[in-house]
């Protein structure tokens, strides 16, 4: 239970800078998700907080204490790895107890903590098993158990769900969220999956090429993206981008509009005209893909009950001016 501060944190490998200065104040018990495409530096950022990567510039403080030079074990953190990183020759019990054993904790206390974590994670029947005798979801739980028994101030998760199948992922997502709430531990969670980010985060950091493009609550980020990248990355299907010139706005700028804000209108009405390419009826909703003048692709998301235009048909597209997001040539929000 602690606050975490990152202050103009930078990381370079040789002359290549991969993290260009990230600032954030994380308050006690907050669940922060770092999200971004692969190669954006999100894992590096997490590993810097963990102490597995050195800090090139800037400062990391956990509970007000500078930890830049501290070894991972002295930072009061616990980490859950993508591939679980369980020790293959140790039983579930030994895996969870290993860190405590190294810390020379009395045996009775180790056993009590392991038992408590096992109960919390429903791992009791598997304590004597080896990791290879467990399913992916159970291994994931053991990895979390190993983090929990240390009672750390901060949990670090490095894409913990990416090796699980879709159904299990949804289930474990809820479990992680519940667990974090229950234990009240500050958490940093790295993922490339925006659904995980939206559902788990109290606040999220959207990373793009080593820069934190936007930091904010998920719905705030969704409704009010600060850059073109964030608007395009968060939300599925992604935001439509239209060259503003087509709509009579200054050249070079772009207009972003979310698929659910666009509606199909009769030809000649609405803001512009589009050619229907194909439709994807998903039951509750229908996604309609069109091209408009200038070759821009536009997706419309409409209610499943609304009539679907046929392929090859010319239709009008309308949206409210309030829903428009305008971006300048460098991708910044205007």
């Amino acid at each position: 239970m602690a606050t975490v501060s990152l202050e103009s944190l930078k990381k370079s490998y040789g002359k290549t800078e991969v993290i260009h200065g990230v600032d954030i104040e994380i308050s006690d018990g907050e669940f922060i998700v770092i999200v971004g495409p692969s190669g954006c530096g999100k894992s590096t950022l997490l590993r810097m907080v963990a102490g597995l990567e050195g800090v090139s510039e800037g400062e990391i403080r956990i509970d007000g204490q500078r930890v830049n030079e501290k070894e991972p074990m002295d930072r009061d953190i616990a980490m859950v790895f993508q591939n679980y990183a369980l020790y293959p020759h140790m039983s579930v019990e030994q895996n969870m107890a290993y860190g405590l054993k190294i810390a020379k904790m009395p045996k009775a206390e180790i056993n009590a903590r392991v038992a408590e974590a096992a109960e919390l994670l429903q791992l009791e029947p598997y304590l004597k098993r080896r990791p290879r005798q467990l399913s992916g979801g159970q291994r994931q739980r053991v990895a979390m158990g190993r983090a929990i028994v240390r009672r750390p101030s901060v949990f670090l998760f490095d894409e913990p769900l990416s090796n699980l199948d879709a159904k299990l992922r949804v289930q474990m997502r809820l479990e992680i969220k519940n667990l974090q709430r229950e234990l009240g531990v500050t958490a940093l969670y790295v993922t490339h999956d925006q659904v995980e980010a939206m559902t788990l985060a109290d606040r999220m950091i959207v990373m793009n090429e080593g820069v934190a493009d936007q930091i904010g609550a998920p719905l705030e980020v969704y409704a009010n993206p600060q850059t073109e990248f964030v608007a395009g990355f968060i939300g599925s299907p992604p935001t439509n981008f239209i060259e503003a010139e087509i709509l009579g706005a200054p050249a070079g700028t772009k207009i972003g509009i979310r698929p659910e804000h666009v509606a199909i209108a009769p030809v000649g009405q609405g803001r512009t005209t589009g050619l229907v390419l194909y439709a994807e009826p998903l039951g509750a909703e229908t996604l309609i893909h069109l091209t408009i003048a200038g070759g821009n692709a536009v997706t419309v998301r409409q209610d499943g009950a609304v009539a679907i235009p046929s392929e090859g048909e010319q239709v009008g597209l309308s949206w409210r001016e309030d829903d428009e997001m305008r971006f300048d040539a460098s991708g910044r929000r205007l």
Binding site: P72, A78, N83
Partner: peptide, 27 residues
């Protein structure tokens, strides 16, 4: 041996020789 194993041991507080004796040798 996956790097993550060495990192997990480091987070668990194992110094290099401890990692060698406790993890690498049995493996």
């Amino acid at each position: 041996v996956p790097d993550e194993l060495a990192e997990a041991a480091r987070v668990d507080g194992a110094r290099p020789m401890r990692f060698f004796v406790d993890i690498l040798l049995p493996m």
